[in-house]
Design a binder for these strands. Structure first.
Lengths: 261, 261
DNA sequence: ATGTCTTTGTGAACGCGTGCACAAAGATGG
DNA sequence: CCATCTTTGTGCACGCGTTCACAAAGACAT
């Protein structure tokens, strides 16, 4: 019970936990699928299964948005699609600019999932002059020199960075200077941005490394279960000769032990 | 995060928290950069800044791996690179198969970050017979029919799915049946997998929607600060006529008037 | 109405992750 | 050897997120 106040969650984007926000798109996708199948209502149990989450969690998530369900029945699909869309800000148009039109940038430009929900690829930007004018996914690539103007003229507030890592921070700075306040970073770089700017990163190599960790652990457990010698996964087998703090070993010769105190 | 039912009630395995594992690749990247600059040691403060995290958090993370630092000095870069690499399982070779060679799949195949650390693109698989044999990133695409054999012969345990959403679950099932136990899913689908299989997803559209949410919130606050009428971000303005079950086609045509306001 | 049945919404407990703050450990200099 | 200085490693407290379990709300049948 929302403390008896109205069923309206008092303007609270503030009150919506980040973890919940991250799941809303998941619910929305499942609901959209139901909507296309003309399913009128859905229970928390069913929807949770479709979204791959716990039903109690789903109900709590929805409770942050308000009381949109009916006890004994479930949730009205269309109504919920609308409420979540509105909460996520998908009822308005979001022009997006992609900077760095290499393999990945081009792939994203062609990606259908973009236009589907409020997002529109408004500009493609690349530093290579040779690419200027070349159409990618039906949109002419523009040169980085015009980045500022392009962002302003199109009212872009969300930028996608798909440049090589070395250029990412610079591009980021320029985007922010031009007025972008949300960045989706595909470059394997830690971006630093001023307060008020949101950055989310998508990092293939990090994801793979996390999978490798679990994969290795599984292999080790399996070996142990087989009764064989477990994979040596944590002993200090042949470390690269833990460098003595003072004297560095061989190759680097007389590297002065620099290390700004 | 992983979507499947991969919930492990804290295996006694390694006491390394999931959150820490997710940051290790970040530290590793920063350390590798330092290593290339021949920096011998680094303090938790410096490294934390480079990785974009809190220094106390970094120290605690490292403490799960062991005591690899030297008080008063810091951490030996080379030694730490080795320890983290080993912990993540990057000292061994991980053959990876990419299924679905469209724009995105091809872009990933060409992505350099792959080979860099233990990962090797061992096979490209696509359902389109016309693509079979076509070289992408120097590797000939093979047909889905041979998926099982390809996975087995190459000892692939990590699969990357870049197919259209409709094919993702089926491809996933086949990968798992063939022996894959870790999946990186780029398709906008919730994959269900048996226990013991890890799934991580990369979802462009979800990331954008999360950014849109915050963007909308920022716009609302800004408007409020300007003294203008705040963006209506939560009132029940013009809902799609809450569940007016008016003539919903379907088996149950009668459709009671549910969902009162 | 009354009773039964279904499903929501949420109080409460728990566990994980984060950040502070500090003692311990080691380096360094006299 | 002792004093001082730097930086690690961690005990502790706090807050967020998850999950359980259940009372309340409403649908539906009689």
């Amino acid at each position: 019970m929302a403390t008896g106040r109205t069923h309206r969650p008092a303007t609270r984007s503030r009150g919506i936990p980040e973890a919940t926000v991250a799941r809303l798109p998941l619910y929305l996708r499942a609901l959209t699928a139901l909507s296309e199948r003309s399913v009128p209502t859905v229970s928390s149990e069913e929807l949770a299964a479709a979204a791959g989450v716990n039903s109690a969690k789903l109900r709590k998530d929805f409770s942050y948005l308000g009381s949109y369900g009916t006890r004994g029945v479930g949730y009205d699909v269309e109504y919920l699609v609308y409420q979540i869309s509105r909460e996520l800000g998908l009822t308005q148009d979001w022009p997006v600019a992609i900077v760095g039109i290499g393999n990945l940038g081009a792939a994203l430009a062609n990606y259908g999932g973009f236009a589907s929900r409020g997002f529109r690829v408004a500009a493609l930007i690349d530093a290579d002059p040779a690419m200027a004018g070349t159409p990618v996914a039906g949109i002419a690539v523009q040169h980085t020199d015009d980045l500022d103007r392009i962002i302003s003229e199109n009212g872009v507030s969300i930028g996608v960075i798909t440049t090589p890592p070395g250029a990412a921070q610079q591009v980021c700075d320029r985007l922010v200077a031009a007025g972008v306040t949300s960045i989706l970073n595909f470059a394997p770089t830690v971006l630093s941005v001023p307060d008020g700017v949101d950055v989310r990163k998508v990092d293939l190599s990090i994801e793979l490394q996390i999978l490798a960790f679990h994969e290795q652990r599984k292999a080790g457990e399996e070996a142990a279960a087989d009764g064989r010698a477990p994979v040596d996964t944590d002993a200090d087998e042949a470390p690269p000769m833990r460098a003595t703090p003072t004297g560095r070993k061989g190759p680097d010769g007389d590297m002065p032990a620099v290390m700004p105190a």
